[in-house]
């Protein structure tokens, strides 16, 4: 069976996606920083799903190593799932550019570096899939996430461009836009229960959208309509509301 490469495999959404793809029979490459911490998860997936699992050390910000790490993978992964992300601290990012840069580089620049290499590979082989976990935050900038939101907007646009580029080669590119998800990133935040998904729901939505070769999936699904309203709201009104 084919391998899927999951980058950000320690995150809650990464774990849920690894389990979902393993359940579907995919072997896995789990990538993250401090990859020794992935050993537990690798054991777990092997026992639960009887698939092959390899772990690898990978840092999105260390762009100089991306090509070498990817070329070492044998067999090459049939699909790449991009989960890693960094919310950062908006208040710090406003006054300290190094925080802003870390947010931008993790959510956008790092992916451009890696996915350029992978897109090249998939394009020449005429197959593959790329799944990027972006965010509804990228649909319209807000005061509470000027940097995170714009970095996700850039990632969304980049994925959209990749989809356009790779369409004729038969490579599927899926953009995932989660709303609120109960993860480490949102721990301690007071999230509305009805609008908040569990990582497992996100994984299931992603897997289904991938199977149907969809271009964009919102999860939970009604975020599409929430964002439809938010993105169409006249600026004069938008300035007055606090979201």
């Amino acid at each position: 069976m084919e391998y899927a490469l999951i980058i950000g495999a320690k995150s809650d959404i990464g774990r849920a996606l690894a389990a979902r793809y393993a359940r579907a029979g995919y072997n896995l490459y789990l990538a993250a920083r401090k990859s020794e911490e992935l050993t537990r998860e690798a054991d777990n997936l092997r026992i639960r799903y009887n698939v092959r699992v390899a772990t690898l050390e990978f840092d999105l910000l260390d762009t100089g190593n991306h090509e070498e790490i990817y070329k070492q993978l044998s067999p090459r992964p049939a699909g790449t799932i991009c989960v890693a992300g960094y919310l950062g601290d908006q208040k710090i990012a406003e006054i300290d550019f190094s925080e802003a840069r870390k947010i931008i580089d993790t959510n956008f620049t790092g992916w451009v570096s890696l996915l350029n290499i992978i897109a090249e590979d998939y394009e020449s082989s005429g197959s593959g899939f790329i799944i990027g976990i972006s965010s509804v935050a990228g649909d319209r900038g807000r005061r509470s996430n000027t940097i995170y939101g714009s970095s996700k907007a850039a990632f969304t646009t980049y994925l959209s461009g990749l989809r356009h580029r790779l369409h004729s080669s038969g490579v599927v590119v899926l953009t995932v836009k989660p709303g609120f998800v109960r993860t480490r990133m949102t721990e301690g935040m007071d999230l509305p229960e009805k609008l908040t998904a569990k990582p497992e729901e996100v994984a299931e939505d992603v897997f289904r959208a991938h199977r149907k070769a969809r271009a964009i999936v919102y999860t939970r699904w009604y975020w599409r309509w929430i964002m439809w309203v938010i993105t169409r709201m006249p600026d004069r009104l938008f300035q007055r509301i606090s979201i």
């Binding site: 809650d12 537990r40 998860e41 054991d43 777990n44 026992i47 639960r48």
Partner: peptide, 18 residues
């Protein structure tokens, strides 16, 4: 969240889990 299976022996049924 500490919910990984760590080892299972098909012969003896010995399971190690978190």
């Amino acid at each position: 969240h500490l919910n990984c299976f760590r080892a299972f022996d098909e012969g003896t049924g010995e399971l190690t889990c978190e």
